[in-house]
Write a protein that binds this DNA or RNA. Structure first.
Lengths: 191, 191
DNA sequence: ACCTGAACACCGTTCAAGT
DNA sequence: ACCTGAACACCGTTCAAGT
């Protein structure tokens, strides 16, 4: 990549970061280009879609969340590990208002630039869930895709200003449901 | 209202109903006007905002849901009443893709044309919740606003095509959390 | 290689001009 | 009273023309 192109790209990412923090992920791409003092076509040349821009912007965070999950897989109790990772995921999305809807769309759209990151994240969560289920501390009737949906629900709550004040409490409600094994209190007897 | 105006209004509502069923509540207002063979300005004269159009369109459903809650207040067990009303609410929104976001915004925006309907709905749910809590079958640590947020979460799930297949299962998960009274199993001894 | 202005087809809002 | 076309300020997409 040519030096001027690299510079444009980096500057666009920095400006996009601020703009999204202020206005959410639906911020006008034209506005980002204006603030970065480049043409809109230049932004689109570097990031052909809004998702591509977001993927570049969130890649570090995505990787950190995945790494955190791997780390938690072998530390702490299975219950605490799952719970703490859930909290991290939901808390993270609050920095990027509106990102949950895009992630929910991306996980089934193999063409989306965010697809791979979302699938990786879901898999990381699924491993923590499986471990907790094996230890008998999480309900056995849900899987990684359910967990992803639960995280999305709670993250979306935080995006809605009228509902956000309830997000913490409802995180607790949902977590308590997740960590209960209804009708099967003894983890040692499978059948 | 003049006869021609009345006719335009009714026709617009009918067309809007079809358009929203097909494309969701974010459908272009221009498109609705086109389909109804009137100018866009005419649509906006009858319904100055998207919310006003939706309120006119959903008023019957809103009233039915509220009436259903009142009816359930004095029939069936408090637990079944709450659960069945929750199911009705969540199920209803699936007919109007995207309406949940508008409702979440409307409940705190006193200027929104949907505000009153949302507040009434929340109050109806709150009464069913209070009754269930008094009977000791619902957790005591949530209120009507939490319940509204829970319904919104589950309704939003149904709007996301990638997550919708999990909506039924997660309804069950959330319902189980709602109907458990954690750490307080005896409804007769308050403290 | 990379950048850009301009044209394009949309959107919702507003209002002067018509019947 | 009620309706409407047109102008307006936006949006993301596309591409021929520049350096």
């Amino acid at each position: 990549m040519r030096a001027d192109a690299r510079k444009n790209r980096d500057h666009l990412l920095a400006v996009a970061g601020s703009a999204i923090t202020e206005q959410g992920v639906d911020v006008s791409l034209r506005d980002i280009a204006r603030r970065a003092d480049v043409g809109l076509a230049t932004l689109l040349r570097h990031f052909p879609t809004r998702e591509a821009l977001l993927d570049a912007l969130l890649r570090t965070s995505f990787d950190e969340l995945t790494a955190k999950a791997v780390e938690l897989e072998s530390s702490g109790s299975p219950e605490d590990a799952l719970l703490s990772w859930l909290r991290d995921c939901v808390g993270w999305t609050t920095e990027y208002r509106g990102v949950t809807v895009l992630m929910a769309a991306a996980i089934e759209d193999t063409q989306s630039a965010l697809h791979a990151s979302c699938v990786t994240l879901r898999a990381a969560g699924a491993r923590l869930l499986t471990r907790a289920q094996a230890a008998g501390v999480a309900r056995a009737d849900i899987d990684g895709a359910d967990l992803f949906a639960l995280i999305a629900m709670l993250a979306w709550l935080g995006d809605q200003s009228a509902l956000a004040p309830r997000a913490d409490r409802l995180f607790g409600v949902v977590a308590s449901a997740l960590l209960t094994n209804p009708g099967e209190r003894d983890p040692q007897t499978p059948g």
